[in-house]
């Protein structure tokens, strides 16, 4: 099957004066439609940078990224997709929420890029209310400003904003890191339901192995800008090859013990 997204030999070098910094080095992976692909790895290993290159926010220094077979980057120019087709939930929700806008305007802003008829349909009041309820916000929240919300509430506003256009492909960068387990469960369940209903495809970035295992079909482990291990989630969990993957996994049994402890 042809992949929906294919990343081939992609590198990213940040330059400043005569300083060069290699954030991503020769990364290859592909994601099929309807698949959730997990990206896990050391802090600073290039996960968010990859997410930004895929969604048009940072041009790669070399390599190609294709979506439905078409190249996304033409040098430093991003070839725009159908509006609303691809969305990203940023790691730091604060930076993506304009403090001067009310929540309703923030969530519906991505619709402005759509043709009028589609905008009207997707921006209907019922749809908006259904969406915010599913991420655990309330109708009266729509009239408020971002600063009136808690950290986890802001993260959920960002998730609703990414889902409003009914995208086919979503990059989720640590989407639930600020949430308590119960609210996290709601958001992850919502993402899984949407995936089943609409055959959504996700690039799911997280540092939490338990969440990756629960959400993803395949995954890649990154270290220092490179992919050090890639494969099906179950295979990697049962039989990790790379030593960094093993370290990450060694943290899981501890959680199990703790949980069992708690239950006695």
């Amino acid at each position: 099957m042809n992949p929906l997204l294919a990343v081939n030999g992609v590198s990213k070098e940040y330059t400043k004066g005569n300083h060069r910094f290699q954030a991503v080095s020769g990364v290859d992976f592909a994601i099929t439609r309807g698949e959730t692909f997990g990206l896990i790895g050391e802090s600073g290993s290039g996960k968010s940078t990859l997410g930004k290159m895929v969604t048009g926010l940072e041009p790669p220094t070399s390599g190609t990224i294709t979506y439905e077979g078409n190249s996304l980057w033409n040098g430093n120019r991003f070839n725009r997709l159908k509006p609303g087709e691809m969305q990203i939930v940023f790691q730091d929700p604060q930076s993506s929420l304009d403090p001067r806008m009310r929540v309703q305007a923030i969530i519906t802003e991505p619709l402005l890029a759509l043709p009028a008829a589609e905008r009207k349909e997707k921006g209907s009041k019922e749809r908006l209310l259904a969406l915010i309820t599913r991420v655990g916000l309330k109708p009266d929240h729509l009239n408020r400003y971002p600063h009136e919300f808690s950290g986890g509430q802001r993260q959920r506003i960002a998730i609703a904003r990414a889902l409003i256009t009914d995208p086919s492909f979503v990059v989720l960068d640590e989407p639930t890191s600020a949430l308590d387990v119960s609210v996290q469960a709601n958001v992850l369940n919502l993402l899984q339901e949407l995936k089943r209903e609409r055959n959504l495809t996700y690039l799911f970035i997280s540092h939490n192995m338990a969440v990756i295992r629960y959400m993803c079909d395949r995954m890649a482990v990154m270290q220092k800008g490179r992919i050090v291990e890639i494969g099906h989630v179950n295979d990697i969990f049962v039989n990790p090859v790379d030593s960094y993957t093993k370290t990450l996994l060694s943290s899981l049994p501890q959680l199990h013990e703790k949980k069992e402890d708690i239950h006695v």
């Binding site: 119960s182 469960a185 992850l188």
Partner: peptide, 21 residues
């Protein structure tokens, strides 16, 4: 809250959330 910890959840099974808002 303790019961909603995701680390033992099985893939494909909904995670336990606390019902209600």
């Amino acid at each position: 809250l303790i019961g909603a910890l995701p680390d033992l959840a099985e893939q494909g099974q909904p995670l336990l959330a606390i019902p209600g808002e």
